[in-house]
């Protein structure tokens, strides 16, 4: 067996995703999907003074899309909304510390795109 991306920590995040659930009346929400494989992530975010107050997600998909969404919500919750907006796909991927082939990077970025999509709705709208 070669290097696996299905390490225990990834499987754990898949089976017990952190920040999984819904925020009632969130400040911002988004939905991102990949029609080719049916994966879907819904993101709910509360922001106050550029600070992430809460971030939750729901969705269904492959191990990679769910586990990475879980990991990213944990990490990005501690950041400022403006910082997240400046992050590139590569920044998000390197934060994940998983070696992914180009085809699977889309899976791993689904959660990140959902977060960015929600926050970009926030910028300049809410103070």
């Amino acid at each position: 067996m070669s290097d696996t991306i299905y390490r225990e920590i990834i499987i754990d995040h898949y089976k017990n995703p952190r920040n999984f659930g819904k925020i009632k009346n969130p400040d911002f929400k988004s939905e991102v999907s990949n029609p080719l494989c049916g994966d879907k992530i819904k993101m709910f975010i509360n922001i106050e003074d550029d600070k992430i107050r809460d971030m939750k997600f729901m969705g269904c998909g492959c191990v990679i899309s769910i586990a990475t969404a879980s990991i990213l919500t944990e990490k990005l919750k501690a950041m400022k909304a403006s910082e997240i907006l400046r992050m590139s796909n590569d920044d998000a991927l390197s934060m994940l510390e998983i070696k992914l082939s180009p085809n699977r990077q889309k899976c791993a970025l689904l959660g990140f795109w959902a977060i960015k999509k929600a926050i970009s709705g926030s910028h300049g709208v809410k103070k």
Binding site: T4, Y6, L36, C37, G61, C62, V63, I64
Partner: peptide
Amino acid sequence: FHPHDIAQILDEENIAVRAGH
């Protein structure tokens, strides 16, 4: 199991299959 995960784990065993529609 998601077809992408099945295909990816099989690839780790050097078995090439396709996943999708």
